[in-house]
Nucleic acid binder design. Structure first.
Lengths: 188, 188
DNA sequence: ACCCTGATGACAGCGGCTGACATCAGTGCT
DNA sequence: AGCACTGATGTCAGCCGCTGTCATCAGGGT
C-alpha cells in the first residue's frame, strides 16, 4: 500500500463540493476542505490553482468533446451547422447527471466569483470552437461569430435544462435554441 | 475649500491605471495606488469594491446607454434590429477614446482576473438588453438570444476596432459584424 | 456655541495563496 | 544490502486583498 491514502485530488474535490453545498462557497475555507479530506491547505493548492477551480476542472473534457465533434463534421457542412451539431452532441456528457449538475449550478449561481469563473470557462470553449472552425478553413469573423453564437445557445439551453424537472435531453434544448436563434437573427 | 483634496475617487482611479500600465496589474498593490493618490488603502476600498473595479466602474453608463437606445427604438422594429441599433449607437461613447480604450484593453488582456471581470460586465450588459427587450414584449428565449447575439457582435467589433490603427468608427464595425452574423446563422 | 454628517485615517485581523525547505515511502541501480 | 533519487505531502513564514471597528475632524445647519 502507498504511503498516503489514494486519490488525494478526488477526496479534496468531494470535500470541497460537500462543504460548498452545506454551508456555501464563501463560508468555506480552504483549510476546512483540506481537513475534511485529511490533507493540508498547502496540498489543496498543489492540486487546484485556486479555491474556485475545484468546480471547473472538468471543463477540459467538455472542450475536448466539442473540438472533436467539430473536427469530425463533414467538410460540406456549413459552419453554423457544424457548431450546432457539436454543441448538441455534448448532451451525452450530461446523461444521468441532471441532479449533480443542478446542485453544482446552484452553488455557482449563488456566488459572483464563481459566475466569473464560469464565464471565462465558457469563453475558452468559444475560443476553442473558433479555432477548430479556422482549422477547417472558416475565415474570421465568421468563425468567431459562429462559435460565440454556439456558446450563447448552449448557455440558454443548459439553463432551461437545469431549471426543468426530471431529465429530458439536453440536446433537444440545444436544437430548439438554435432554431430560435436562426429565427431571431433572420429578423423575425 | 474642503477639508480634503477634491475628487478622491478620480485620483485613485488615475493612480491605479497609471500603475497598472507602468508595472502591470498584479505587481501593483492597493497600498501603492492609495499612496500615489495621497490616501490610504482603506479609502481605496471605500470607493471601489475591489482592486479590479477601478477599470470597470464606467460600464454603468454603457449599460444605461444601451437600455435607453432599446427603449427608444420604434415599436415596429424586429428584436434583432433593435439590438443592432442599440449596440451600434454606443460608438459615440468611444469617440476620441481610441487610445485610452486601447491602453485599458491591453491591461485587461494581460491578466486573467481582469478578463473574468470584463466577461461578467459584458454578461450584465446582455442581461440588461434582454430585460429591455422583454419590457417591449419580446418573449424568451428570443429576448435572451438576441441580447447574447448583440453582445457577441459587440465583442468582436470592439476587438477589431481596438486592434485597428487610427480612429475609424466603432459603429461601422458593429454593423459589419451584425451583417456577418446574419450570414453565418443563415447557414452560409 | 452646538450637534451632526460624511469623508478619511488607524489598526487589527481573516483568509487566499506562495515560496522554501523538510520528510519519507517507494523505486531502481549497484 | 546499501544507496541515491523521486515525488507527494507536511510545516512554516509571509504577502496581500479585503473587512470591521472606532477615532478624527471640517463644514453646514440650528
Amino acid at each position: 500500500m502507498g504511503r498516503w491514502e489514494p486519490n488525494a485530488r478526488g477526496r479534496l474535490a468531494q470535500a470541497a463540493i460537500e462543504l460548498y453545498v452545506e454551508r456555501g462557497y464563501e463560508q468555506t475555507t480552504v483549510a476546512e476542505i483540506a481537513k475534511r479530506a485529511g490533507l493540508t491547505e498547502r496540498t489543496f493548492f498543489r492540486h487546484f490553482a485556486d479555491k474556485r477551480e475545484v468546480l471547473f476542472s472538468g471543463s477540459g473534457s467538455l472542450r475536448d468533446h466539442l473540438v472533436n465533434a467539430v473536427d469530425a463534421a463533414p467538410d460540406s457542412a456549413a459552419p453554423i451547422d457544424v457548431i450546432a451539431g457539436a454543441v448538441a452532441s455534448v448532451g451525452v456528457l450530461f446523461h444521468e447527471r441532471h441532479e449533480s449538475a443542478r446542485q453544482r449550478q446552484a452553488v455557482i449561481a449563488a456566488n459572483a466569483e464563481l459566475r466569473e469563473r464560469e464565464l471565462i470557462k465558457l469563453a475558452s470553449l468559444s475560443a476553442a470552437l473558433a479555432d477548430a472552425l479556422r482549422r477547417r478553413g472558416v475565415p474570421d469573423p465568421a468563425a468567431s461569430l459562429a462559435a460565440e453564437a454556439g456558446i450563447a445557445v448552449f448557455k440558454i439551453a443548459f439553463e432551461r435544462w437545469i431549471s426543468g424537472t426530471g431529465e429530458p435531453d439536453l440536446s433537444r434544448f440545444v436544437r430548439e435554441a438554435f432554431d430560435e436563434l436562426k429565427a431571431v437573427t433572420a429578423g423575425r
